[in-house]
Amino acid sequence: MTLSSPVITDSKPEAAPGGDDGGGGAVDRVYGFLRSIPTGFLWLIVVVWSIPTLGLFVNSIRDRDAQRATGWWKVEPGDFTLDNYDQIFAARAGLGRSLLNSAAIAIPATIIPIAIAAFAAYGFAWIDFRGRKGLFIATVSLLAIPLQVALIPALQMFNNGAHFTLPLIDKTITLIPDFDLAGTTTAVWLTHTGFAMPFAIFLLHNYISSLPRDIFEAARIDGADHFTIFWRLVLPLSIPVLAAFAIFQFLWTWNDYLIANTMIGANASEQPTTIVIANLAGDFGRNENILPAGAFVQAFIPLIVFFALQRYFVRGILAGSVKG
């Protein structure tokens, strides 16, 4: 796309503030009001978006009978109770331990895929090798695989390793030894790492491939090799997208139920918070009243992560430096 030509093609008169035709003061004021609609719209969305969460929060500090009897907006100060939270933190299933387990899953499952995917994205974007495009499309296409289908094979692999029986001499060669990983948090984050790859590569490649070619060429002329370019240029320049991906990957892995549930199985001591809280609800929804509180406990750490990483979305990491 070219920048210069189409920007101002349709040359409509601009409504300069304070207008050149003096007559329409009131009209201009109304118009000015209407022009602020986007901001109003933004805050309207914000309010609408927060209502469900607000309701959840209010309900999390009301007891079961109150939750069922009246809407949350009719809450009275006297209704507040921390019983639901007490119940969660006192749970036999061990919320503290489960939070540790969640961290033991989510942290490696965030950092490791970022590293590996950044390598691959750089490789696909800036290293010229045969079959690059085809391989890239094939990789990203795997995004479409419903991960449920991969759960059982992955579990089998973590359970038994991977073996290959040689024909004729009937000897089994172990391709991946059995590390006895089934039922551990390690199995969970390894699985997350694999499943995250297509999206991570897709997202990072989109960003890394759009970095200006000049930078790379200049660096190559300087004699920098791929490793140096990647390490010294690409990584620092990709901070916003890395932060974005880190946020999502952390949230997905922190909030994941399915993979953890499959890989951990019956091993209660390795269960992350999602499983513990879902199980707390009781069969037939017997303890549904503590779910709002559970959801808040669950969401607390992801929100901190989001706030912490949000500051990396800063305008012009790249632009400012090119200009300078």
Partner: peptide, 13 residues
Amino acid sequence: NINTQVEGGNPPD
């Protein structure tokens, strides 16, 4: 889950 665990070879006792 019990189906997954049995198929994946990781059932409880």
